[in-house]
């Protein structure tokens, strides 16, 4: 008998968007207030874990067709590449730079290369957490 999980599935469909919003907010607020790549990535991974709890693995992998081991590898690659980018400009490895730009919608915004490094950290955390959860849940 297929178990009737309507309440959990319906609430998951709504709550996942709140969790994803909080994850993006935490990621971008990390420069000036609590947050950053690590906990942004963890919250993002918790959204995926909630989807995996409410639905089954095949449905989620059809909807989100990423190989999460490759996501982790891509995150480490981005983090190392932003560190190497400083060498191109004759600075030591992992030197950060920032300056203010006048963007069309956001106005005067300060953009820093640390955000790219943090994006790499976030992708690595998401990939590692989700692939751990997937690999310990599959062989039961």
């Amino acid at each position: 008998m297929k178990i009737n999980d309507v309440i959990l599935e319906t609430v998951t469909k709504i709550v996942v968007f709140i969790i994803l919003t909080v994850a993006v907010y935490l990621f971008f607020s990390g420069h000036n207030s609590p947050g950053g790549g690590f906990i942004g990535g963890l919250v993002l991974a918790s959204a995926f874990v909630l989807l995996l709890l409410a639905f089954d693995i095949e449905t989620i992998q059809k909807g989100i067709p990423f190989d999460f081991k490759r996501v982790a590898a891509l995150g480490v690659f981005i983090a190392v590449t932003t560190g190497l980018g400083a060498i191109v400009f004759g600075q030591p490895f992992l030197t950060q730079a920032f300056s203010a730009f006048n963007l069309p919608y956001f106005g005067e915004t300060e953009l820093a290369t640390i955000t790219l490094f943090e994006a790499g950290v976030a992708l690595a955390v998401v990939g590692v957490v989700v692939s751990i959860i997937l690999s310990i849940s599959e062989d039961v």
Binding site: I7, L8, V11, I14, V15, I18, T21, Y25
Partner: peptide, 21 residues
């Protein structure tokens, strides 16, 4: 504080469902 508004909505949605489960 937008975080508190999101927290209010989140708790209001999820706490009864966790009790139900």
């Amino acid at each position: 504080s937008v975080r508190l508004v999101l927290g209010i909505v989140f708790v209001f949605i999820t706490a009864p469902v966790s009790g139900h489960l």
